[in-house]
Amino acid sequence: MPISQTLKHDVIKNIVLKLSKTINTDYEEDNNELCFDFPKNIGDGYFKAIEFDFGVGIIIADFLINENLSITFEKDKINPLKFFFNLDTEVKFKDSENDLKLNRLESLLVSPATNEAQTFNFNKNKPNTFFYIQINRKLFEEKIEKFIGDMDEDLETLFRDLNGINKFHFKSYYSLEIAELIEDFKSCDLTDFMQSVYLEGKTYEIITQYLNQFTKKNNNPGKHKLLRKATVSKIEEAVQIIKNEIDVRISVNALAKRVGLNQNTLQAGFKLLFSTSVNEYIRDHKIEYAKNLLENSELNITEITYKIGINSRSYFSKLFKTKYGLSPKQYLTQFRKNENKSA
């Protein structure tokens, strides 16, 4: 029998609390978190809600159940701004005008009109994983009131609509950097205060990255593109090759051939998902990895240069200084000085 839950746009923990009661399972509450696991007769997985200050809250869910799940937000007078990131199987979204399918790595930035219902549908017997951010703009105004006048025009319009009077939706792929931030969020092993600060920071990183992506696409309307699921998978495969073979010099053409794409499609995919070219992505990843080696290994600068597949120490120093404002030697000296102060 399908599981159906109708909710108000309530505080984020109440959404998960009411869903746990619908499926008749226990929940655990700890400070700003509320979580439940699906009972074994329904399937496996969890829903977790976390509340932060200024009306920001998240739900993160990962489940596989033997019934279809439908969550409807009923008509309301005050509507939050919602960010929905789909990490796995297709999810369906429906409101008075839209009937959308969200594939893996697709997202939805949405706010209903006054007195409009919205429904998310999740398929049974398929893995469902999503990350959902909800912002009560009336409470969030205190957080951004000093900056709102300097915002991009589209963002200012979005955040000045404090009660969510105007209908809005924006569907797109989200970057793999955002996917990695969500994985960082999910895998956090800190506890208590440190965990809360870390997770709130990651949530704001995700919001910032996504709004930056949103404004760039709005300012370049002719550049909107859709990627097929197969293409996204191949781009992810290319990213993994770059990370696994960091000591290898690989051309864009060779990388494209290895993942079964033509060079132009690979470049276009990186531009869409990362707002950068393939070569720029490779270079930035190498330099970030080198910084990590400087901080956490005993390798000298020459050894690190070869470790990241760069043959010229001077070229490596130039790239490093461009990214971090210091040469590798200067950075290492400063890092060790700071380490000694904190010891």
Rank of each mutant, 00 (worst) to 15 (best):
E288S: 14
Q330W: 00
R336C: 04
I308H: 06
D284G: 00
I282P: 05
L293S: 01
S275H: 12
R313D: 14
S312L: 08
K318Q: 04
T322H: 09
E298H: 04
K329A: 12
K307E: 04
F320S: 02
N300C: 10
F316M: 02
S314R: 06
F270M: 14
S275L: 08
G309P: 00
F320H: 13
L332E: 02
R283Y: 03
A290Q: 07
I304V: 09
E303S: 03
L332Y: 13
S277T: 14
R283G: 04
Y324M: 10
Q334N: 10
I304R: 07
I308G: 08
T333K: 07
K329R: 08
R283W: 00
L273Y: 03
R313L: 05
K271P: 01
L319T: 02
Q334S: 12
E298C: 06
T305S: 11
T302P: 08
Y331T: 10
F274R: 09
R313K: 13
Q330Y: 00
I301E: 02
S314C: 10
R283L: 11
I301Y: 00
G309S: 10
S275D: 14
S314N: 13
S275R: 11
L273C: 04
K329M: 07
N296I: 03
G325V: 10
S277D: 11
F320K: 14
S317E: 10
N300L: 03
Y281T: 13
E303Y: 03
P328M: 06
K321W: 00
F316K: 05
H285L: 15
Y306F: 11
N300Q: 11
T322D: 12
R336W: 03
T305K: 01
Y331N: 12
S317H: 08
L299N: 09
Q330S: 04
K323R: 13
N296K: 02
G325H: 05
N279A: 12
Y324H: 08
L299F: 09
S297H: 01
R283I: 00
S297T: 15
I308N: 09
N292E: 08
N279Q: 11
K307D: 03
E288C: 07
L273N: 11
E303I: 04
S297M: 00
N292G: 05
A290L: 04
I308P: 06
K291Q: 13
N296S: 10
T276M: 14
T276F: 07
E288T: 07
Y324G: 10
S327N: 12
I282L: 06
R313I: 09
L294E: 08
S297R: 02
Y324V: 09
S275N: 15
I301G: 01
S277G: 11
L294I: 09
T333D: 15
S314A: 14
N296V: 01
E295P: 03
H285Y: 15
Q334D: 07
K291Y: 01
N292D: 06
Y306Q: 12
T322N: 15
K307V: 00
S275P: 06
E280M: 03
Y315T: 05
L272C: 05
S297Y: 01
A290S: 04
T276Q: 14
K329W: 05
K271A: 12
F316Q: 04
F335W: 13
D284N: 13
S277W: 03
L326M: 13
L319M: 14
T322K: 15
E280I: 06
Y289L: 07
A290H: 09
E303D: 08
